[in-house]
Each structure stands twice: as structure tokens, then as C-alpha cells.
């Protein structure tokens, strides 16, 4: 538990941060919450030459809805804030269900959603949630140009994201809902605070009883978080009933690519995906919408 040496920068503006990462290139690592990065450094699984701590940069710790109805989550917005947000409670049920299931209270006090997605751990919960919401990561470069990267294209492999050298992820963004959102996040964990054996994010955007847009994504059952496109499409334009729910659950289970490991067999994990999609879609909240 003794990290290697590194150079440390704590810029107070984004411009300074860009200077620091420019000097070190791929050898620089951005430190926000640090709840994924610091454990890796402690175990010497990672040994960046330079750490750029962005915690002193004002204006990154926010959670707000824009005028067009989209939601922006700043790079320093902690899980803690999400867990206690009435905005999420009312309008983003899948996010509100997920926040308290991230690690433990101390980690939530420090860790961030954006950092978690950048870390791209296939067992990370937030990427699934953002996939189900059609979310994006906002990347910014030294010139101040921002680009939006759909999370489906942002997380490109286990622990790999598609940020380019010199870019900083400054926010995550959720597009406006097409109707009323319902949804939930169901997580099978061996113990509270554990990574997901199976996690299922469900986001439905509905008008009346009709599903305008369905988002279903899986955690822990593949090399990446998995967006269940077929299952989503099977629900679009439909209403929830026993047969549409069953079909979506089957398609989601088919989309899973689990492995046999200490958490269970391939068959078991697929079964849990099926069960959780079914439970999520059958829940009181989903039916009520």
C-alpha cells in the first residue's frame, strides 16, 4: 500500500490542468474522486508519472438540468450528491436507484460519476445507467473545444475509454426524456458495497402506457457494460404486459456475455439478467407510469 513516486499538480483552472497533461501526455492521470485510481496506484497496478488533481478547479461540482431538459453532471459531482438529489428522485429513477448502491458511504462521499465512467470498469454501475439513459460524456481539449461522446462509444474496452490524449472529461450529460421516465437499477451483489455480480439498468420513457424509448443495460456480465439493443427495440412503441416483459427479459439475457467465476456460472448470471429485467419491468413503479 505504498505508491510509486509521481509528480503532482493541483491546478486551479482547467487551462492549468491542460498545461500539466500536455507536459506529461499519456503519463498524466486526472484525479477527481480517486476512488478507482488511487487503489490502483496503491497496489502499483498503475504508476502514472504525473497526477493532475482537478479538485481545486471551481465550477465542476454541479448537477443541473439545462433549459432543453437535458441533465449535466459535472466532473466533480460526487455520488453523495446524486444519492441525495430530489431532482434525480423525481425525474431520473434509474440514477436515483443506483447512487446508494455504489460502494459504501465513504467512497460515495468522494467518488464521482464521471470518474467512474472514465475508469470503464466492466463491473462499474454508472456506465450501464448512462447507456440506459442514452447518456454522453463531454470531453474538452486544451483549446476549449468540447465534444459529446455517447457512452456507448466512450467505453471501448475493459478499463479503456475513447478520450484522446490531451482531453479531459468535464461532464456527463443525459438527454431530455421522451415522455415520463420510470426505471430502476437492480444489482446482485454478494455483500453491500461489492461490485455487481449482475447489474441491470432499466430506463423507460413513456407517454400514457406506451414506451417511447426503452433503455436496458447490463453490468458485470461482459468485457464492457452491455447495452441490450434488441431488448430495447422490442419494447419501443409497446406497452408493458407479461409477454412484452418476458420477451425483453429473454433478449437481454441473450445479450449478456458472462463468464464462469467465483460469482457464479454463465447460466446463473444469464438467469439473473432475465429475472432482474423481468422484475424491473414488472415493478410497481414501471407499471404505474
Amino acid at each position: 500500500m505504498y505508491p510509486s513516486r509521481f509528480h503532482y499538480e493541483a491546478p486551479s483552472t482547467l487551462d492549468e490542468a491542460f498545461e500539466a497533461i500536455e507536459a506529461y501526455g499519456d503519463e498524466a492521470k486526472i484525479l477527481a474522486g480517486g476512488m478507482s485510481l488511487i487503489p490502483l496506484i496503491k497496489l502499483r497496478f498503475a504508476a502514472p508519472a504525473c497526477i493532475v488533481d482537478i479538485n481545486n478547479i471551481p465550477g465542476l461540482d454541479y448537477l443541473e438540468e439545462e433549459s432543453d431538459g437535458s441533465l449535466r453532471i459535472g466532473a466533480l459531482c460526487r455520488h453523495r450528491t446524486l444519492e441525495r438529489s430530489s431532482l434525480l428522485r423525481n425525474n431520473y429513477p434509474v440514477m436515483f436507484a443506483t447512487a446508494p448502491l455504489i460502494a459504501d458511504p465513504m467512497v460515495r462521499n468522494r467518488g464521482t460519476l464521471v470518474g467512474s465512467i472514465c475508469h470503464a470498469d466492466p463491473q462499474g454501475d454508472w456506465a450501464s445507467v448512462m447507456l440506459s439513459l442514452g447518456g454522453e460524456i463531454i470531453a474538452r481539449n486544451a483549446e476549449g473545444r468540447e465534444r459529446s461522446i455517447p457512452v456507448s462509444q466512450f467505453v471501448v474496452g475493459p478499463f479503456q475509454n475513447s478520450l484522446q490524449t490531451g482531453e479531459i472529461a468535464v461532464a456527463a450529460k443525459v438527454p431530455p426524456a421522451r415522455g415520463t421516465r420510470t426505471g430502476t437499477y437492480l444489482k446482485l451483489e454478494r455483500r453491500v458495497g461489492d461490485f455487481a455480480t449482475v447489474g441491470v439498468a432499466i430506463n423507460l420513457e413513456m407517454s400514457g402506457g406506451t414506451i417511447n424509448r426503452a433503455g436496458i443495460a447490463l453490468t458485470g456480465v461482459g468485457g464492457n457494460n452491455i447495452q441490450c439493443t434488441s431488448a430495447e427495440q422490442s419494447l419501443a412503441g409497446k406497452s408493458l404486459n407479461a409477454s412484452t416483459i418476458d420477451q425483453a427479459a429473454r433478449l437481454a439475457a441473450d445479450a449478456a456475455q458472462p463468464k464462469n467465476d467465483v460469482r457464479g456460472s454463465i447460466e446463473y448470471k444469464r438467469h439473473i439478467v432475465y429475472t432482474f429485467v423481468q422484475r424491473g419491468l414488472s415493478s410497481r413503479e414501471a407499471r404505474a407510469a
Binding site: 497526477i51 488533481d53 462521499n109 468522494r110
Partner: peptide, 12 residues
């Protein structure tokens, strides 16, 4: 706020 002091650098 409670934090894990093993997962912060003192400089932070």
C-alpha cells in the same frame, strides 16, 4: 465528511 484516509494523498 467521513473519507477513507488510505485512499487520499495527503497533498489533497
Amino acid at each position: 465528511l467521513p473519507m477513507k484516509s488510505c485512499t487520499m494523498f495527503a497533498v489533497m
